[in-house]
Structures are given as C-alpha cells and as structure tokens.
C-alpha cells in the first residue's frame, strides 16, 4: 500500500490545481477555443515552458528516477495520421463536453454526478477504438 501513497498525493495536487485554475470548467474551454482569454493558453504555455526547463535540467544533471535509471520521457511512435485524426476527434469531444480525461475524474469530486455519463461514454469510445483500431489508418 505504501508505494501508492505518493501517487495518491500527486493525484490530490493535480485535482486541486485543475479546480483552482478553473481548467476543469466547460466555460474556460469554450473561451479558449474562441481565443477570448489568455487564461488557458497561459496555463498550458507555462506548464510546457516549465516542463521543458525541468526536463533540460534533469538531463544536464543526469537525474535518476527512484528506480535508478535516468529520468526520461517515453518516446511516442512516429506517425502523422493517427495523431492528426485522433487528435481532431478528441478535440471535437473536448470542446463539446468541456472536459478532457483528467478533468472528467476531477469533476466527480466537485459533485457533478452527470459527468459519470461522460466517463461511461468515454469508456465506450475507448472500447470501440480497441475493436476497430486495425481497420483505421495510423
């Protein structure tokens, strides 16, 4: 059980920051896709800039993870179609229900039971992808 506590704490921090930044709000996602506020761009932008910096420092200092190997990000397979098509499909859903997978779970905690319908549908979407994936261009 002990080895899971750190992940639980990271999760709590994640839930808190996404609520406090309002990134879990459908309204903020609408506003972002309308280019009417810098807020969401500021969050994603500073997250990426900080992320690049942290990973660069880790590389320079040869930081090891707790399992003893060098800290590194798993590489995505190269490709184009799956990323642009899959990404567009996700974007359509993200804008429609205003929640990407992280916020979906977090919104349960904020007391919105109807988000469970979105999660159930997302599970169905994932399942259907698993069934038809070999027929799709990747």
């Amino acid at each position: 059980m002990g080895k899971y506590i750190k992940f639980f704490i990271v999760g709590i921090l994640f839930g808190i920051v996404l609520v406090k930044s309002e990134a879990v709000s459908w309204y903020r996602i609408f506003e972002m896709f309308k280019f009417q506020s810098f807020h969401m761009y500021g969050i994603i932008g500073t997250a990426v800039i900080t992320g690049i910096t942290l990973l660069l420092i880790a590389k320079l200092l040869k930081v090891k993870n707790i399992e003893g190997s060098f800290l590194q990000v798993p590489l995505k397979e190269s490709g184009f179609k799956r990323y642009i098509i899959g990404g567009t499909i996700f974007g359509l859903g993200w804008a429609l229900c205003g929640a990407c997978p992280g916020p979906m779970y977090i919104l349960i905690g904020t007391g919105v039971p109807s988000i469970l319908i979105v999660i159930a549908a997302a599970l169905l979407g994932t399942f259907v992808y698993g069934i038809v994936k070999d027929k799709l261009p990747h």
């Binding site: 799956r82 996700f90 549908a121």
Partner: peptide, 17 residues
C-alpha cells in the same frame, strides 16, 4: 451531447495515443 462528447474523447484520445 454528453454521450457523443464523451465517446469522442475516449475514441480520439486512444487513437491519438
């Protein structure tokens, strides 16, 4: 809206990895 939105999120994220 909730079902289609959720479905697209689940399908699209896995497709895009």
């Amino acid at each position: 809206i909730l079902i289609v939105g959720g479905f697209l999120v689940g399908f699209g994220t896995r497709y895009a990895g």
